[in-house]
Design a protein around this nucleic acid. Structure first.
Lengths: 143, 143
DNA sequence: CTTCTATTTGCAAACGATTTGCAATTGCAT
DNA sequence: ATGCAATTGCAAATCGTTTGCAAATAGAAG
């Protein structure tokens, strides 16, 4: 058996390195992020946090997400028609396919597409700072 | 000389077909859209509208955009970190490169990327309903 | 283990973009 | 010209997110 290892980021080390305090609310939120297999939004993170420590506030969730985003520990995705959703910045770059029926997010990666984007930008006289590729679709009917 | 013809959509006909009334505010907004070479947001459309008829309200701009989007006459783009921007749904599909310094939008099109997206979705068992490909970049320093 | 202070918190209020309820206005079929 | 449903402007409401502020606390220093 060969299970793919899903690396868990060491947020606490990252925070310490950024010179910020490791508080109880932050520890709770970091824990939630560490073992989130999905792409939760702030409200969902808040719900999960409150289940652990009901004194945590939504503001703190937002502030912590901003902090983590700032140090590059998480990525924020503004998918269509909804609040921002977050994911640990672990592993390598990928884009997203969003199931418009369930909201599920599937990650994918295409070197070829990345190359083509570079090529296009170059031809237009630009250098890409970042990009966004999102496919919105529904499960294909089994045939 | 061979100038590319930029088709101007006949919004009024489209509206009439949709069975909605052609009012003064709508006529003004449609005129603005018809000869907008850029991708203005609601506030910008509002400003341009007020310059023509100062009794037009922002709500009406929003309502009209929603209406036009509903009948497929315009496209709404939610680029990063800003209000939605609109463009006439004329010509064929294209994606966007956004100049992060100026906010300028450059349109581009890549059959190859479209194909690859289809391929990826199919492999994942999905059919694409729509997609979003945005490149954010800055002008490459002339060398 | 106390003391100290800058950082962080929770709360409520402010925010920007967009939508909505409502009474007044207006297109347009008659 | 008339009548009424569609549309408007306005103000207030909404949603996701941010912010000011006074109270709480992490964690360095003793």
């Amino acid at each position: 058996m060969n299970q793919t290892v899903i690396p868990k980021p060491d947020y606490e080390a990252a925070l310490r390195e950024a010179g910020v305090r490791i508080t109880r609310p932050r520890r709770v939120i970091l824990g939630i992020l560490s073992d989130a297999g999905d792409h939760p939004d702030a409200m969902e993170i808040f719900r999960r946090a409150v289940a652990i420590d009901n004194s945590i506030s939504l503001s703190t969730v937002y502030r912590t997400m901003k902090l983590l985003e700032g140090i590059g520990a998480i990525h924020r995705h503004a998918f269509e028609g909804g609040p921002s959703r977050f994911e640990p910045a672990v592993g390598d770059h990928h884009d997203h396919l969003i199931d418009i029926e369930t909201g599920d997010v599937i990650e994918f990666q295409s070197d070829r597409i990345e190359e083509l984007q570079q090529e296009i930008a170059r031809e237009l006289g630009y250098e890409i700072v970042h990009h966004r590729l999102e496919l919105y679709g529904r499960k294909r009917r089994r045939r």
